[in-house]
Design a protein around this nucleic acid. Structure first.
Lengths: 262, 262
DNA sequence: CCGATTGGTTCGCTAGATGAACCAATGGTT
DNA sequence: AACCATTGGTTCATCTAGCGAACCAATCGG
């Protein structure tokens, strides 16, 4: 069977399916919208959106609240998500390590992977404290800020450059949006093997990230802890960095082991 | 706007979308199958399945392992699932109550709702013990066995009868598959307000379930604890039953409160 | 009381999805 | 090593199924 000639996924896509999945993701991001609003945001025709909604609803991927005629995710979406958690190696294997890192540091932990040009949180852990960072599992954002920087640092140069050549969104005034400075930062991350971010994603938030590498030397994910700046003193930092790095190494090793069964 | 005339969801369904969602669910249940096997199981034509797979993959709902040409759920599925967990009232609100019930009894907890003619686990909790029942979040099975009995007991009579009129699958030799006896059991559950199941779903497993009711008197879910039979002595049972029932009542109240905001 | 907007429905047209047939590559069997 | 069944992937003429414009009745806000 043909091994390498790249199969042409793009040219076989079924338009109706793409549109439906788009609507589904729209509803995931913005629940409780009505037909008209969904139509507007999706840029499709109303009749089409309505039909897609019917199909999605009939399969229980979405459900419409009885009277208000407004849509949100349904039970099938729940089921799919939980199946995904079991099927996706990294989410499953990382679980225990994330929990350990969390309870030993007492701070929120996130595991993020590249999803297209975004950084997506695939697993997380939250401490039982009044003040904490939200884990936001399933959340997605550009990878040029916060722990995403680590993810970006270890991508192919080509990918990095195309991403740097586009306008970069500033989340706070501390977000680095200058390509040249960012290039410097990325080089630093590559040589040091970790990254500490101060208020780049939201003010008063500090995060410490380290890369999870595959046996082929490619990056798989970033693991990081996030804490309110007040809780991370200058003296505490080095210990935390080492704790995060060792968790990242441990996860890298476990993943490598799982790929070569036996 | 028309209030009651039932909108005709069925007749607007888009075939390609239905087929795609079917394939997606197939992959959720049985990951790591190849094109041919998926084609066989879905009963569609190979070309169609291939196109659907392309669309699903392009949107990251599934991903194909590089060389083995085999498919499993992708990152978008994860993201959707986590969004669903946040959007679906019952899954979100039940979280703390489930955890409390779990840690106070030391046994696995499940919250199950009706999904079509099945009972679907929407949330769960597992103890940190060597021997325990699996939570199986996202799992689905017929509702005539185990805690599903409670779900069935409080459905409309019409629904109950149509379900009873069909052949009932026996999971173990203790599963009740006789319509008449089952009718008796259901009546009992309705009058007592709880149900204790011994090895109906799998041997050596006991479960104690109570219904979560809506303000309209309709059933919303069942909450139950599941334990190895050996850990539940005759003398312990009454206390456990009361603990489960009170958790169910608490959840019912919380849900009622959330529906009438303010 | 009115105009704007909502969710839902109809219908004729044709773009686009469809399935049968085909291909090359692979792997187990003899 | 020659075989055959099976795999993942591709093509193309056919015709159906999805399409959007237009429409409807029910609400809502003012």
């Amino acid at each position: 069977m043909r091994a390498s000639p790249p199969k042409e996924i793009e040219k076989y896509r079924v338009d109706a399916v793409d549109a439906a999945l788009g609507v589904l993701q729209l509803i995931a991001e913005a629940p409780d919208l009505g037909l008209s609003e969904i139509t507007r945001r999706s840029g499709q025709s109303k009749a089409r959106v309505y039909r897609l909604l019917c199909s999605l609803e009939a399969s229980n991927f979405i459900s419409s609240t009885a009277e208000k005629r407004t849509y949100r995710l349904g039970l099938a979406a729940l089921a799919i998500g939980n199946a995904a958690e079991r099927q996706i190696d990294i989410a499953r294997i990382a679980g225990p390590i994330i929990a350990k890192l969390g309870s030993s540091t007492g701070e929120t932990v996130q595991l993020r992977v590249r999803d297209g040009r975004n950084s997506l949180c695939v697993a997380g852990w939250e401490p039982e404290r009044a003040v904490k960072v939200l884990a936001g599992i399933g959340g997605s954002r550009p990878m040029h800020a916060g722990s995403g920087v680590v993810l970006l640092a270890f991508q192919d140069e080509a990918f990095r450059e195309t991403l740097l050549s586009e306008p970069l969104k500033a989340f706070t005034e501390r977000t680095c949006v200058d390509p040249d400075r960012l290039r410097q930062v990325l080089a630093n991350v590559r040589s040091q093997g970790f990254y500490v971010s101060h208020g780049e994603v939201s003010p008063d938030l500090i995060s410490i990230s380290a890369p999870v590498m595959g046996p082929d030397g490619k990056i798989i994910a970033t693991i990081h802890i996030g804490a309110p700046t007040g809780r991370v003193s200058e003296s505490l930092l080095p210990t935390l960095v080492e704790t995060v790095r060792s968790a990242a190494r441990e996860l890298s090793a476990l993943l490598a082991a799982s790929r070569n069964p036996g």
